[in-house]
């Protein structure tokens, strides 16, 4: 059986918010080492990968691997009903058809239990190869969110260019063009590692959706390499991450 307790529901709320705009149904695979989830969006343009190691949890027990088919909209409704500082315990039997969520207030005076019906999902699982990225950029996640929002006013396509001088985001559309450049800073809030300069185009709508994960982490890591998907990674405390992969746009 599975029993996993998070000290604060706030973390689960942030995780669900980071997932639900991009995927609606997904399987959460639980094992003794933690929880994993991987799904493509409906258009198969992007892939989201979530990993929560046992260290994310106050208490974690998973005797046998269990796969939980989740409707993220339903899960979102349940977590919304809880207060952020409640603790939450997720539990499921070995061959479960439902997930139990038990919320407990700080002073233990209020408990709320929900049963969420699980789904039988038959999803493709993709193998993500280890990639030696040509460019790796780290910046404040709020800065990345701001850039993605500003770019999307100009065009549905965002061009990302990265050189040793910095990272540049460009958008060209009917109302004009936008260019935002960031250089590495001495105080280390922006770091830019470049093996080879690169320029690639991406759908701004997806980049914007990835920034729903901003509350999870102060920092975001952006990795680019020729002819492979962009990686946008937010770490989750010290024991997990949410990674978004986005297929590039290519010239006709």
């Amino acid at each position: 059986m599975l029993e996993a307790r998070l000290g604060e529901t706030q973390l689960l709320k942030k995780i669900v918010d980071a997932l639900k705009e991009i995927i609606s149904l997904s399987t959460l695979d639980c094992s003794e080492t933690g929880m994993q989830l991987q799904s493509m969006d409906n258009s198969h343009v992007s892939l989201v990968s979530l990993s929560l190691q046992t260290g994310c949890f106050e208490k974690y027990r998973c005797d046998r691997n269990v796969s939980l088919g989740l409707d993220l909209k339903s899960l979102s409704k349940v977590v919304k009903s809880a207060s952020g500082d409640d603790s939450v315990t997720l539990s499921a039997a070995d061959k479960a058809d439902k997930l139990l969520l038990s919320f407990e207030s700080d002073n233990k005076s209020r408990t709320a239990d929900y049963e969420l019906k699980l789904l039988n999902l038959d999803q493709d699982h993709l193998g993500i190869p280890d990639t030696n990225y040509a460019c790796t950029v780290q910046m404040p996640s709020s800065e990345f969110a701001r850039i993605c929002r500003d770019m999307s006013m100009f065009s549905e396509t965002v061009v990302i260019s990265c050189t040793k001088q910095g990272i540049k985001f460009s958008a060209n559309g009917d109302l004009g063009s936008a260019n935002i450049k960031l250089a590495e800073t001495s105080k280390g809030d922006i770091t830019i590692d470049v093996e080879e300069p690169i320029t690639q185009s991406f759908a701004g709508r997806y980049l914007n959706t990835f920034t729903r994960a901003t509350p999870l982490s102060d920092r975001v890591k952006i990795c680019l390499a020729p002819e492979v998907p962009l990686l946008v990674e937010y770490s989750i405390e010290d024991y997990g991450y949410i990674r978004y992969y986005l297929a590039p746009k290519v010239d006709d």
Binding site: L126, G127, P229, D252
Partner: peptide, 14 residues
């Protein structure tokens, strides 16, 4: 003009 590629063309099913 640019065309959107599919993520499944980069990562293979396992």
């Amino acid at each position: 003009n640019s065309t959107q590629t599919s993520i499944a063309s980069y990562f293979k099913k396992v």
